[in-house]
């Protein structure tokens, strides 16, 4: 580490500094535009490293790749090269990385493919053809959005089919077989060893929730 004491703290205003120094327990920083969100986050990580944490014990999740890269570069400026070993990335990329290591515990190959939106739509079209359903009524975009929203709300096909409200909505939308489309879609992806974007979030939840071989504790202890 190439740093000279705590000079980086002097570059912060009072509230920013307080947020950086509050390293124990949960912290919520609500920050307006241009108020130094990234600055606080990076200095906070740098501060935690200065206080003795190992870089690979730090996990930082962001929404965009750009934010993740920028943050790493800025942490590097404060604490030097060890910043590289901080786990900083988007939700999707960090989760994908964890899933690569643990996929077999939830029935996926570690070399699983990530299906993009177009792939997902093609799978949906194949399912619709198989079930003899019209793509006019079961518009692939709408079906995809429906499946995506179910996954985001942590509703797998087995729960979807039992959910009266969802089934009612589908029946109003004239798509009574939606639950079956969803089920076959998931089965096809799984058979192909593929996860779509929503799976990266949903399957990680599944992994931690079902907790095979104490995988949850493993990551709890690590970070």
């Amino acid at each position: 580490m190439s740093n000279t004491g705590s000079s980086y703290l002097d570059e912060l205003n009072k509230v920013q500094r307080a947020a950086v120094e509050a390293t124990e327990g949960p912290v919520l920083v609500v920050a307006g535009p241009g108020s130094g969100k990234t600055r606080v986050l990076t200095y906070r990580i740098a501060h935690i490293l200065q206080k003795g944490a190992k870089p690979w014990e730090v996990l930082a999740l962001t929404f965009t790749n750009k934010a993740a890269r920028e943050m790493k570069a800025r942490i590097g400026k404060v604490v030097g090269g060890s910043a590289e070993k901080v786990w900083a990335g988007t939700f999707h990329s960090i989760f994908a990385r964890i899933l690569r290591q643990e996929a077999e515990k939830i029935g996926y190959p570690s070399n699983f493919t990530i299906y993009d939106t177009e792939d997902s739509k093609n799978v949906i079209k194949a399912v619709l053809t198989e079930m003899n359903l019209s793509t006019d009524v079961y518009n692939p975009n709408s079906v995809r959005a429906r499946i995506s929203s179910a996954k985001s709300n942590l509703i797998p096909p087995a729960l979807y089919v039992k959910d009266k409200e969802l089934r009612e909505q589908d029946s109003i939308a004239k798509r009574p077989h939606m639950h079956e489309v969803y089920k076959r879609y998931v089965a096809r992806c799984k058979r192909a060893g593929a996860m779509d974007f929503d799976d990266l979030l949903y399957r990680l939840y599944e992994l931690l929730h079902r907790n095979p071989e104490g995988v949850r504790e493993k990551y709890q202890q690590r970070f």
Binding site: V15, A22, V27, V30
Partner: peptide, 11 residues
């Protein structure tokens, strides 16, 4: 015991 900080100064 969450701590909440508000950054309101826009640079």
């Amino acid at each position: 015991g969450i701590q909440v900080f508000k950054l309101e100064q826009n640079y």
